[in-house]
């Protein structure tokens, strides 16, 4: 395999939430590196800080201290415009609750990031149709999100995340609201995207189905990295879980 560069670098990130009188430290100093093209799962129980870490990596939330580098650029240094550009072009987001824009059709949801990115309407429509076909939604371009099943909505969200050919896809519990079979389909689709398009995929999840496709798994417990495992180590781990 060719030399891969580091696409995400997280350096001693802390995040403290002020909840009235109490202060909750969701992240207590997380440091990690992710290489381009990797499929990473951030695993951990609810409340362990994985979503907080995920938001910090995606530039959706500012860490209290510490730095996040995307392509060696410290995202805390970006102005509003550059940050919007980063979210538009570099990163694609997928959420547990799909977060499609309800008033728009599937196709319009997919083309919106392209329009923000300055693409003209015809080109965007063409690309949007191609992306929806890619995720297996050939005949549902003009359906609104309410008219689609959960799995179909998540497919639209995946197509949308790919809109501007991002380098990174961040998926927060992408299978959390889906049944087992649909969840598996979505995981398979994500894996295919990472293979075919060489996109770095980072998921925050507690879905064990995700383990089988991940290159590395980062276990977060109580705001700290508990362990980072490669796939080889993982198979043993999964075996243990199954045999238990």
């Amino acid at each position: 395999m060719t030399e891969r560069h580091t696409i995400v670098r997280v350096q001693d990130v802390h995040r403290v939430f002020n909840l009235g009188k109490h202060q909750v430290e969701a992240l207590k100093g997380v440091t990690l590196e992710i290489k381009a093209g990797e499929y990473i799962s951030i695993m951990g129980p609810s409340g362990s800080g994985k979503t907080t870490l995920f938001n910090a990596i995606g530039g959706l939330d500012k860490p209290t201290s510490g730095k996040v580098f995307i392509d060696e650029v410290d995202i805390a240094q970006l102005d509003a415009f550059e940050l919007a550009w980063l979210r538009n072009r570099k990163i694609g987001y997928i959420f547990q609750t799909f977060n499609l824009i309800q008033v728009m059709t599937a196709l319009e949801n997919v083309t919106l990031p392209m329009i923000f990115g300055g693409m003209n309407n015809d080109e965007a429509t063409q690309r949007g149709v191609a992306l929806l076909k890619l995720v297996g939604l050939d005949k549902r371009f003009n359906h609104k999100p309410q008219e689609l099943s959960g799995g179909q909505q998540q497919r639209v969200a995946i197509a949308r995340s790919l809109a501007n050919d991002p380098a990174i896809i961040l998926a927060d519990e992408p299978t959390g609201n889906l049944d087992l079979a649909t969840g598996e389909e979505i995981i398979e689709l994500l894996k295919r995207m990472s293979r075919e398009r060489n996109v770095t995929i980072i998921t925050a999840t507690h879905d064990y189905k995700m383990l089988a496709v991940s290159d590395r798994v980062i276990w977060i417990v109580d705001g700290r990295i508990d362990k980072i495992e490669d796939r080889e180590q993982l198979n043993i781990q999964v075996g243990e879980i199954v045999s238990r």
Binding site: F81, A84, W85, R87, N88, N99, F116
Partner: peptide, 9 residues
């Protein structure tokens, strides 16, 4: 929030 994630200023 979604729009901002997609790159809206």
């Amino acid at each position: 929030g979604t729009m901002k994630c997609l790159g809206a200023l």
